[in-house]
């Protein structure tokens, strides 16, 4: 038996919005410690990994490890039927070929139930080792989204260059070129606007904006995004999954990490 309850349905909606255009089908691995998912896009250039901690749920029970393969587009459709403030419970019985989704409205007298068929999906699991990255940039997620969107007006790829003075995002195309430079800054009053750069050595790598723009669908999950880069390894773009509850307190309940291989010739 598997049962997981989140107090705010909007978190699950945001997670699905962040991944379902990149991957249509994927398997959730459910263990006593939480739920996780790893899937590559069809061209095997990018990968998304989601991790939800069991203790981030208001109720979490996993009697034995389960793999729940499903169509994420369909899951997303069903989740659109849940209110943002609904409590959402995912239930799966051992050996069953479907999962149940239960939405409880805040008014406490309205309960909706939906079922989704499970799928047997071929496992395509990549072993990603713990890596020490040369450059780590932590910046406002909305700023990163804006930069990727704006530079995609200029070209298909962005070159991320890190030096002691800061980080440059630049693109070149038929109409010309453009760049956005950020330097480290910190604000006590608005920590969500901070830019933090940690660098061992200067670095410059180029990535397809098509994928980065897909990654920024996770922007509503968290105010800050972390970019991790090293020569000859894929870029990692990480968003914490933050649940804001009624008292406006924020709990980190997991993360989404996107991996993107660099452009050829880099």
């Amino acid at each position: 038996m598997f049962e997981a309850k989140l107090d705010r349905g909007i978190v699950l909606k945001k997670i699905l919005d962040a991944i379902n255009q990149l991957v249509n089908e994927a398997s959730w691995e459910c263990t006593s410690s939480g739920m996780s998912l790893q899937a590559m896009d069809t061209s095997h250039v990018s990968l998304v990994a989601v991790n939800l901690n069991g203790d981030g749920f208001s109720k979490f029970r996993c009697d034995r490890n389960m793999v729940l393969g499903m169509n994420l587009v369909n899951l997303s459709k069903i989740l659109k039927c849940a209110g943002n403030d609904d409590k959402v419970t995912i239930k799966a019985a051992d050996g069953d070929d479907k999962i149940k989704l239960i939405f409880e409205a805040p008014n406490e007298y309205e309960v909706s139930q939906y079922e989704i068929k499970l799928m047997n999906l071929d496992a395509e699991y990549l072993g990603i080792p713990e890596t020490s990255y040369n450059v780590t940039v932590k910046m406002p997620a909305a700023k990163f989204q804006r930069i990727c969107r704006d530079l995609n007006q200029i070209g298909d790829a962005v070159t991320i260059s890190c030096t002691k003075s800061g980080v440059d995002f630049s693109a070149t195309g038929d109409l010309g070129n453009g760049s956005v430079s950020l330097s480290q800054n910190s604000s006590f009053d608005k920590p969500e606007d901070n830019v933090t750069i940690s660098m061992q050595e200067p670095l410059s790598q180029t990535f397809a904006l098509k994928y980065l723009n897909q990654f920024t669908k996770a922007t509503p999950l968290c105010s800050q995004v972390t970019l991790s880069l090293s020569p000859d390894v894929p870029l990692v773009v990480e968003y914490k999954i933050i649940e804001e509850n009624e008292e406006d307190s924020k709990n980190e309940i997991g993360h989404i990490r996107y991996y993107l291989a660099p452009k050829i010739d880099d």
Binding site: M40, S43, H44, V45, S46, L47, E124, Y125, L126, G127, I128, P129, D156, A157, T206, A208, Y211, V233, P234, Y259, A261, P262, K263, I264, D265
Partner: peptide
């Protein structure tokens, strides 16, 4: 369309 490396070139698939 720019040419991209594939992720399995970097990580073990199991």
């Amino acid at each position: 369309e720019i040419e991209q490396q594939c992720l399995p070139n970097y990580y073990d698939d199991s």
